[in-house]
Nucleic acid binder design. Structure first.
Lengths: 145, 145
DNA sequence: GTCCATATCTGTAGCGTTTACAGGTATGGA
DNA sequence: TCCATACCTGTAAACGCTACAGATATGGAC
């Protein structure tokens, strides 16, 4: 039978930093695990799976709050899938919005660079365009959140 | 002749929050402006242009540090343009990297949703895929910074 | 049992970029 | 003169960690 894992072993098993694991516990994403007599944490297979779930969702850009919701839903296998679906769908929208912004941004910067010769600052298009939003193609570019 | 602007008027003129303006001053992005007898800030046209420059660069996703460099360069019209060019070029690369990550991400989430019927959590693909990274198309997706 | 290197513990502070508040003061018009 | 509004400073929150300091536990070699 497999021994329970120390926090370091859990970190290795999941690729999540030790500090981050403790942080997840503090904010309630991970349940406080049992401790040894010396108050060191010991994790079982359930904790490993849960942390992997969290890490994957984080990698996919889900917010901690969204993950909290997903975990709560995952805990009830009989419940409808629509909640999880909605969270993922909202996240998808958000990602698509960010992509659109970044693409506009990329075009803007590329255009700026296209016009930049090897001259002096005095005729540098980068500086000039930054100084005057009116020269932008896109009226409303905002950096993503 | 135009009066100097209060911080509120400057905020309106540039679309930058009052709190943000004071923050920019604190971190040295904006010069401390002259004050009235009652110690309220008064901004002239130069400050307005500088803040517009900053806002535009921020909208384009440049970091505050990069903007600091750009401002320093803009202050010397005789200098070579290559520094500003390099900053913009590096930023372009970064934006393109982020786009690529987000696109991979979008595909992953979309694929997850494609497989999600209207069933229960027990057979919810969203939850399931999150729980098992092995089911991902992309081995190495990370959320952008 | 003893020693020691390593791992882990708690608590706090920092990152970057704002935003929000609390509690006090200045300004400008009626 | 009065008062609503705008402004002031300083501090803390937000996000999701990361990094430290200083103390304690663990597990293996002797």
């Amino acid at each position: 039978m497999p021994e329970d894992l120390s926090i370091g072993a859990l970190s290795q098993a999941t690729g999540v930093n030790i500090e981050t694991i403790r942080y997840y516990e503090k904010i309630g994403l991970l349940l406080p695990p049992p401790r040894t007599e010396g108050r060191q944490r010991r994790y079982d297979g359930t904790a490993v799976r849960r942390l992997r779930f969290i890490r994957h969702a984080r990698d996919l850009g889900f917010s901690v709050d969204a993950i909290r919701d997903l975990i709560a839903m995952a805990a009830d296998p009989a419940a409808s899938c629509s909640g999880a679906d909605a969270i993922a769908r909202a996240h998808l929208k958000d990602v698509e919005r960010r992509i659109a912004q970044l693409v506009a941004l990329r075009d803007e910067i590329a255009r700026m660079l296209d016009h930049c010769g090897d001259g002096t600052i005095a005729d540098c298009r980068v500086i000039e365009i930054l100084a005057d939003h009116g020269q932008c193609l896109h009226e409303d570019h905002r950096s993503p959140a």
